[in-house]
Structure formats: C-alpha cells, structure tokens
C-alpha cells in the first residue's frame, strides 16, 4: 500500500463487489430457475430466490429431458462431451509434444517447412473453412463418431509453440549427459523431457479441456445421431423446442450442467489455468 486512503480503498472494494454482482447475476438467475417447477416458471415476474425443486429438475434433465423434445435426457450427452474434450486435450498435447521435440532436437531436411505448415493451422479456425472440412470428414466416414468430433480439431500450432518454448529453456547439458549415458532419442524424450514439462502439460490440459468441452459449431455440423450429441449443443435444441412449450426450469438445469465441468476446472486449478492462458498466448 502506497498511501492510506480509506475512502478510495472502500470505493475499490465497492466497485469490485458491484462488478462481481453484475458478472454473476446471470448465473444466479439460472440457478434459481433450475430450482423451481415448470408452473412457477411461466408466471411473471420470475422468482429471484431459489425454490425446492432442484433435485426433481436434476433428475428430469439427466434422465428424461424436456417433454416437448424427442431426446432422452442429457446424461449420455455429458458423457459424449467428456469423451470429446478429453480426446481433443490429450490428442493435441500428444502430437504437439512429438512435433515440438522433432523441431527442437533434430536437424533434418524440410524442418522449417514442417514448422510453417504447423504454423498455418493457427490461421484457419474451423469457422472459416467449415464446408470443405465437413466434406473431408464426410468422405472419410467420420460423421457421428468420436473420431470425427475430435481429430479435425486436434492439430495445434499454439500447443506446439508452447512446447517448443519450454524445450528451448531446458539446458543442453542434460542432452549431453543423457547421450554419454547411452540414452537414445526416445529414451531422452520419455525420461527427461516429459517429466520436465509436467507443469506445462498440466496447464495446457486445463485450457484445452475447456476448449474441447465448449465446441459448438463442429459437433452441430457433424452429428445427426442423437446418441452422439454433446451437452453444449443440446441447449440450442432445447431453446428451439421452448418456442412452443417453455420448460425453462429444465433448460436452465441443463445449462448449469453444461457449464459446471469447465467452471470447476477453472476455479480449482486456477494456478494452472492462469499459467496455461498466459503461456499459450505468448
């Protein structure tokens, strides 16, 4: 503290608390909506305080879904989301580790060519190349499968850059020592590089898990089979049904379920999350 100005300190706290209230208000309303029954949710004004239907709504959202919709609860969709997020996160980390290792520790023809080819992926988000990518996936018979959901999103320039950065800070003496002891390339990779990049891998995992879980446009395009839907995309479909029969309590419960896993990851792994965010953007 540079100077003691109680009023300004008080003002700072007040502004921050107000800011948090504004940011958190939508979540509070969502939570409240998820604790009332359907009858209460069509009476204006809507409640501001929670009711007692939380578990009944939870059960209906997980197992039955909304009555107007044809789907059967979001339990399966949460599982699909989880599989997709994990496949994307682990896949990205694995292939980025390998290619960063090749680019930093080997001299081989076309090294820079490969590097630039990976770099280009940074410039082509799925939103700008949806139709041709969709055609490729359709031709490979990967529609409605976990592979189709995850593999096309797995190439990652940012993760490769981050691991390249990490590997460049690892002292050369370690490689010399390993070679004197007779370790080959892959032995060095598994026994020295991997353990030394542990924190970076964990930080990146947090970011990529959130990225994977929150995918929307891609799953929307390539899944037509109910059993492959993800929970994030199911919300949009519920909102469409809601035009005729609004069951906001169930929709809002599903919304809570869809945001819970990534939010929990951010809050409880905050250190890793902040590290991951600042390092991948560098």
């Amino acid at each position: 503290m540079i100077e003691n100005r109680p009023f300004i300190t008080f003002l700072s706290h007040a502004v921050l608390i107000l800011g948090i209230a504004i940011i958190a208000f939508p979540i509070w309303i969502t939570f409240v909506a998820a604790t009332h029954d359907a009858v209460r949710m069509v009476q204006v004004p809507l409640p501001l305080l929670p009711g007692d239907q939380f578990f009944a709504n939870l059960d209906q959202a997980l197992n039955k879904g909304i009555s107007g919709g044809s789907n059967s609860g979001v339990g399966m969709m949460i599982f699909n989301s989880l599989v997709m997020a994990l496949m994307i996160a682990i896949g990205k980390i694995a292939i980025s580790l390998l290619s960063a290792f090749a680019i930093v520790y080997f001299r081989f023809p076309f090294r820079m060519g490969f590097f630039w080819m990976i770099f280009i992926t940074l410039m082509l988000p799925v939103e700008v190349r949806i139709i041709p990518t969709f055609e490729v996936v359709a031709n490979l018979n990967m529609l409605n499968s976990y592979w189709g959901l995850s593999i096309p999103l797995i190439a990652s320039a940012t993760a490769t850059f981050m691991f390249r950065q990490t590997f460049l800070t690892i002292p050369d003496e370690l490689l010399e020592a390993a070679r004197i002891d007779g370790a080959g390339a892959m032995r060095f990779f598994f026994d020295i590089l991997l353990p030394m990049s542990r924190t970076n891998i964990a930080a990146l995992f947090v970011i990529l898990f959130i990225y994977g879980w929150n995918q929307y446009l891609w799953p929307l395009l390539i899944t037509t089979d109910q059993s492959m839907f993800t929970v994030v995309m199911s919300i949009k479909q519920m909102l469409e049904t809601a035009e005729q029969a609004p069951e906001w309590n169930i929709i809002m419960m599903t919304t809570l379920l869809a945001m819970l896993p990534p939010v929990v990851v951010v809050v409880f792994m905050q250190k890793l999350f902040v590290k991951g965010l600042t390092e991948t953007e560098k």
């Binding site: 879980w213 994030v232 919300i235 949009k236 909102l239 919304t255 945001m259 939010v263 965010l277």
Partner: peptide
Amino acid sequence: LIWPYAVAPVVAGAL
C-alpha cells in the same frame, strides 16, 4: 471474476 471464461458461447447466449 475469471470463471465466465469457461462458459461456452452458446451457454452464455442461453443465459
């Protein structure tokens, strides 16, 4: 303050 980062755009839209 940082947790809205984890909310998917579609979910934010729904809220």
